[in-house]
Structure formats: C-alpha cells, structure tokens
C-alpha cells in the first residue's frame, strides 16, 4: 500500500505544489496588506460590513485584530472555495480520472487488494490536504512575525484543524463519488453542483430568517472560521458533521470500489 500511496503522491506532485504555492501567495498577500488596512478598520466595516453577511459569513465582522481580519478575509470566503476546488480536483483525478486514462488498470493488475488501492488514494489525498493547510496557515504566522503584528498562535491551530476537517469532508465525499464513476468530468459536475448548492443554501439562510434552517445542509455553515480563530473553539456539531461525513463516505467508497466492475 505504501508503494501505491507513494505512486499517487508522485503522480499529483506538480498539481499539489502549484496549488500550495498559489494558496501561499494569496494568504501572504492578504496578511501583508493588513497593516495598511488596520488603521481604517472601523471606517471600512461601516461601508462594506454587510457584504460579508451576504457572503454567508456569520458573527461579528471586524478588522480590529489579525485573527478577526484573517477569519473574514482569508478563511471566511476565499479559502473554503479554493480548498473545495482542490479537494474535488484530487478526488476526481485519483479514481475516476485513472479509470478514464486506464492507469488504474496498472494497479488492479498487481497483487494489491482493491480496498488497499482505495485507502492509499484516500491517504494520499489527506496528506495533500494537510500540506495545503500548512501552506495556508504557516505563512500567516510567518508574515505576522515579520510585520510585527500581534496574534495568538492557538487560534491558528484551531483554524488549521477546522480547515483539515472541512477539506477532508469535501475530499471524502468526492472520492466516494469518484469510486462510482468512470469519468472525472462527471465527478466534477456532481461535486461542483453539491458545493454550489451548499454555498447558496448557507447564503440564503443568512438572508431570510424563514429559511434559516437551510444552513444545516451546508458545510460552509459548519466552517465557522471566526469561532476557531477568534474564540479558539470548534463546535461539537462541526466536528461531528465533518468527521461523520468523512467516515461514512470512506466506508461507502470502500464498499463501492470492492464490488463494482471496472471496465479498463
């Protein structure tokens, strides 16, 4: 299984590196401009504060400190979308993409049980996501140190955990669908629709009190970056939702890949 895991990481090495560098550049940029934004935080919030509500960002919006600013600017909107794209891309390439290209046949013709193939792909995805999260959080801390911005490390540990939980859930769900499909474009279609619907549900729930319960069908609701970064807290329901979805998707994926016909 180690060989198969290593093969997977090697195959996707370039994509992972490029994506991590993009994320690194983005979060570094956001952090670097913070010192120039901070003096005008109150003024800025009074003019654009409502926009964040429309984007589905809950809680008190403020740029008064780095944790608040990062939780809104970096992790409130941009990061979950980028991480979702990354996780779905990985999930599509690892099984459906390999069936499409025929390269999964190489693994299937070797003495590796199907469940081990699936598990190695799952682990390679988790490791890639871990790398993405490190590249997302560490540069903020480094930039803050370089620019002498006050911050608390604990909040960044919490946001890193939340980011991992969120991305693992998206990736697991994607890999489960990937195990069912023969073409990655189908997987991208299905997962893209699911993530878009979840995002819309969360936004609508924030705008219309009568539709408030819609937020519970959205991963974005459970990805509360402000609570993690500012209050050093991840709610139990977020833990349960993300871990539950990940485990159930993993188990379904394992069953599907073991039972299905793979026409290669």
């Amino acid at each position: 299984m180690i060989q198969s895991l290593y093969r997977d990481l090697r195959l996707r090495r370039n994509v992972i590196i490029i994506y991590c560098l993009i994320i690194l550049a983005l979060v570094s940029l956001y952090t670097a401009i913070y010192p120039s934004i901070q003096p005008h935080a109150a003024q800025l919030m009074s003019s654009v504060g409502n926009i964040y509500k429309y984007l589905g960002i809950e809680g008190k919006t403020s740029f008064s400190n780095l944790a608040n600013y990062t939780s809104i600017e970096t992790f409130g909107f941009t990061w979950p979308i980028l991480a979702s794209i990354f996780a779905i891309g990985l999930a599509g390439a690892t099984i459906a993409g390999e069936i499409e290209k025929g390269t999964l046949g190489m693994l299937l013709s070797l003495p590796i049980p199907r469940w081990k193939i699936f598990l190695s792909k799952y682990l390679s995805g988790l490791l890639s996501i871990l790398l993405l999260v490190i590249f997302s959080v560490l540069p903020i801390i480094l930039a803050a140190l370089l620019l002498n911005i006050n911050f608390h490390t604990t909040g960044f540990i919490y946001i890193a955990i939340l980011c991992l939980l969120f991305s693992f859930a998206i990736f697991s769900l994607g890999l489960m669908f990937s195990a069912l499909m023969n073409e990655k474009s189908h997987l991208y279609g299905v997962m893209g629709t699911i993530v878009l619907l979840m995002y819309i549900a969360n936004t609508i729930a924030g705008l219309k009190p009568s539709l408030n319960n819609l937020k519970y069908i959205s991963f974005f609701h459970f990805f509360n970056s402000q609570k993690a970064l500012v209050n050093n807290h991840i709610s139990l329901i977020s833990w349960a939702t993300f871990t539950g979805i990940s485990i159930v998707s993993l188990l379904i994926g394992l069953i599907v890949i073991s039972k299905r016909d793979i026409v290669i």
């Binding site: 025929g102 390269t103 046949g105 290669i264």
Partner: peptide, 11 residues
C-alpha cells in the same frame, strides 16, 4: 499472473 493489456495503461 503477468498481464499485458490491449490498451496502454502506463503512466
């Protein structure tokens, strides 16, 4: 078992 497929399955 050694297997050679009809279609290329190489990387």
């Amino acid at each position: 078992i050694g297997y050679l497929p009809a279609e290329n399955q190489l990387i």
